[in-house]
């Protein structure tokens, strides 16, 4: 059983939902982003998604785009990010770390990618621009190393494609709550809840919801129908307000946001 599986197993036993955070490696700088993640873990976040900054983040809204730009100013490479994750995993082997990014950055390590991910204890990948149809070969190589490819399902995914996606998924499923970029305004609707429930009926894998969850109330609503929520833009926005010299005050602020979210979805 891998770390992701274990986390959802134990959440289920305790009748709890997962809180998943997204923050960008290298934002505001590499050391600070490591401190931010460690603080998330201390604050009780269940799964850590680490954004891999890309020069052309096509699926991101303004908050996360700017975060990617800030990180790239520090010349962050995938290798730096892997090293950072490895250090964190050493201290927290049971907290899953999932890298989220764009295909071109992952391709930069060529065939070494899969062994490097394994070597650095990465639990899963989310690749925004690698849809089901393009993923067959990639998935095989990842699975061989025991790493999950977290699939995205969106409001425009047809039922036919949902079943195809489910048939080759592992880890958890990420339901994109809205048609739009990250951090758009989310309107919680019956339709949204019904869709998540219908996906859950078709799979034993946990289904989490992300995109546009920016407060405890929305997080709470979305956790009712799902197995957890992903919060990204809200945190990246907060991080943008501080320089790397203000680590302590920034992390205090982030802790209070996490506390509030956790209370919402508990």
């Amino acid at each position: 059983m891998n770390a992701i599986h274990k986390v959802f197993d134990s959440l289920k036993k305790n009748n709890r939902k997962a809180l998943i955070t997204y923050s960008i490696a290298g934002d505001p700088d590499l050391d600070s982003s490591e401190k931010i993640i460690r603080n998330f873990i201390h604050s009780g976040v269940d799964i850590i998604e680490v954004g891999v900054p890309f020069s052309d983040p096509m699926a991101e809204g303004p908050s996360i785009q700017l975060g990617h730009e800030r990180a790239l100013k520090n010349n962050i490479s995938l290798k730096d990010i892997l090293e950072m994750c490895f250090k964190i995993k050493k201290d927290h082997p049971n907290v899953p770390i999932v890298l989220m990014g764009y295909m071109n950055n992952f391709l930069s390590l060529n065939e070494n990618l899969f062994s490097e991910l394994k070597k650095h204890k990465i639990d899963g990948l989310i690749i925004v621009d690698l849809p089901y149809v393009e993923s067959t070969e990639f998935l095989k190589k990842l699975n061989k190393e025991g790493i999950d490819l977290i699939r995205l399902i969106s409001p425009t995914t047809t039922n036919e494609r949902v079943s195809k996606i489910l048939s080759s998924s592992s880890g958890y499923l990420y339901y994109i709550s809205l048609k739009g970029v990250t951090g758009s305004e989310l309107k919680v609707s019956d339709e949204l809840e019904k869709r998540v429930l219908s996906i859950k009926e078709q799979t034993d894998l946990p289904v989490v919801v992300g995109f546009g969850i920016k407060d405890a109330i929305t997080a709470k609503k979305m956790s009712f129908c799902s197995d957890g929520v992903v919060v990204g833009s809200l945190l990246v926005d907060e991080i943008s307000k501080f320089s790397s010299k203000e680590d302590n005050i920034m992390n205090k602020k982030l802790t209070s946001i996490i506390d509030e979210l956790k209370e919402g979805i508990a």
Binding site: M58, E134, L152, S154, T156, T157
Partner: peptide, 20 residues
Amino acid sequence: KDGRYGDFGGKYVSETLISA
């Protein structure tokens, strides 16, 4: 049939755009 020219091409987009 996969939208490829040899190894090039394809459909590397976010899931939301696949149906379009």
